[in-house]
């Protein structure tokens, strides 16, 4: 038994080298294809320039993309088990932070794009007996990887997808992966009526997943509550769909340094602190990754992140300054 094992010790040193894509913090990927599946939507395919396999991802994962000067997160739509490429679909948002416009106007095939590793925040529930997916508009993107996993593992799945006429994306994926379990809507009334029914005919053990514009998500959650769904069965992702509103102006008091920073409407607390030379580690700047968490010693925050748990938000002793704010004219105290 001596020989094979004796060799391994030496190999450990060299074996865990930097050749692995799945131990990097960011990846430099090359754009291999750009398609326009519908008006205002660009589907972008990315691959490793050296052809290496990319880090796998859980269905519903998103990719943080450095789009020129901006940073946005987009749902991955491909198969995450052994990905040779990543695919994202980007809706052009005219009044967003500029990231989607950059990806539409500046990016070309052959360009290099810096992305983070995929992050999972909207995963299928393994023990669900059935998965009911509700998608609105570009909110179809995380559902595509959910449908892929459902097909692989033969999960019972049903999807309702509503979109504006001629603006549907991934229609072929949905048809191939969900077949007769997919229902498509281009009229609001028909969708709302069918949603009400669908929410009332699910077997016990079903979990509900919602992604789409904020107003649509709220409406689906309200309808589910009305139909008696407990919150623990309802999963939604607002992220990447539409920009958070600009918010009201407020003030931050830095108790350690005795300074005060004004945060105007349209500027994040993180940006305002940075403008005053206060460096805070950060990554996604969208309330997802948790990097920029800072302690809070006073004031009533309006939490808008997806990182802190409900208990942590209630405790009010931490805040994600990249997205969270305070009410108009209020003051937050931070021990910095």
């Amino acid at each position: 038994m001596s020989t094979p094992v004796a060799e391994t010790a030496a190999v450990v040193e060299s074996g865990t080298g930097s050749s692995r894509t799945d131990r990097a913090t960011t990846l430099e990927l090359v754009v291999t294809a750009i398609d326009v599946p519908a008006e205002g939507i660009r589907s972008i395919t990315l691959a490793d320039p050296a052809g290496r396999v990319l880090p796998g991802f859980v269905p519903g994962s998103h990719l943080v993309v450095h789009a020129g000067p901006h940073t946005n997160a987009y749902s991955l739509t491909g198969d995450g088990t052994h990905p040779t490429h990543y695919s994202i679909s980007v809706l052009r948002v005219e009044d967003g932070n500029g990231g989607s416009r950059w990806l539409h106007d500046e990016l070309a095939v052959g360009d290099t794009l810096t992305v983070g590793l995929p992050r999972s925040a909207f995963a299928p529930i393994a023990r669900a007996r059935k998965h009911l997916l509700i998608a609105g508009g570009i909110g179809i993107t995380p559902m595509v990887s959910h449908l892929r996993a459902a097909a692989r593992w033969r999960r019972d799945v049903q999807i309702l997808y509503t979109f504006r006429e001629n603006a549907g994306a991934h229609l072929q994926d949905v048809a191939e992966l969900a077949g007769g379990d997919a229902e498509l809507f281009t009229e609001q009334d028909a969708f709302v009526a069918r949603l009400g029914e669908a929410l009332r005919e699910q077997p016990i053990g079903t979990h509900l997943y919602v992604c789409g514009p904020a107003g649509m998500i709220d409406a689906v959650i309200d309808a589910a509550h009305e139909a008696g769904w407990p919150d623990s069965r309802i999963h939604f992702e607002r992220f990447g769909i539409d920009a958070l509103d600009a918010g009201d102006p407020f003030r931050v008091r830095l108790t350690a340094s005795g300074r005060t920073v004004d945060v105007p409407s349209g500027t994040s607390m993180l940006e305002a602190l940075e403008e005053h030379g206060i460096e805070i580690p950060n990554l996604c700047r969208q309330g997802v990754c948790g990097e920029c968490r800072i302690p809070l010693s006073g004031g009533s925050p309006i939490h808008r992140d997806l990182y802190l748990s409900a208990e942590e938000k209630d405790a009010g002793d931490a805040i994600m300054p990249c997205v969270s704010r305070a009410g108009e004219g209020c003051t937050l105290e931070v021990p910095l």
Binding site: D22, P55, G56, F57, V58, P59, G80, T81, P118, S120, A123, P124, A126
Partner: peptide, 8 residues
């Protein structure tokens, strides 16, 4: 380790 495919 968070598994990359199942999320378990």
């Amino acid at each position: 380790i968070r598994l990359p495919d199942s999320g378990a």
